[in-house]
Amino acid sequence: MAGKEKLWIQYKKKVLIIEDEVAILNGISDKFTHDGFLTLKATDGQTGLDKALKEHPDFILVDNLMPNTDGFYFLENLRKDKWGKNAKVIMWSNSHDSRTIARAKKIGIQDFMIKSEWEYRDVVKKVKEALGMKTGA
């Protein structure tokens, strides 16, 4: 039984979520887990970068405003890495600022999402679409 579970886990897509607000981090993480993903969690840019470069997740969801090292710190350093320069990333934030969005798009992201405008299930759907998975909707 344990062997089967391990095998199954190998096929699961891995999502790294970088979010300083623990309630949100746990909530969205639970949603991804519920929908069949393996999740990795980090609460600032540097921790997130370390996990990303070590674990090579299939997808990364990163907040913008975080204490110490923010989303841009993570993104800029990720793109310097050989693997990281092509990693799939969605930046999600409660900031609507056009300059923030433009800056993130210039560095290279799959999408920019306003947190308060999206249900968790729709965030998961968006990630599934970006990974070419069936959305079930």
Partner: peptide, 23 residues
């Protein structure tokens, strides 16, 4: 301020959504 106000509301929105989705 609006960002800070929206942050807990986003959490609330997420969890309520999950409960309604019967997660």
């Amino acid at each position: 301020a609006s960002h800070q106000l929206r942050t807990p509301l986003t959490a609330l929105k997420g969890y309520t959504g999950m409960l309604l989705d019967e997660d």
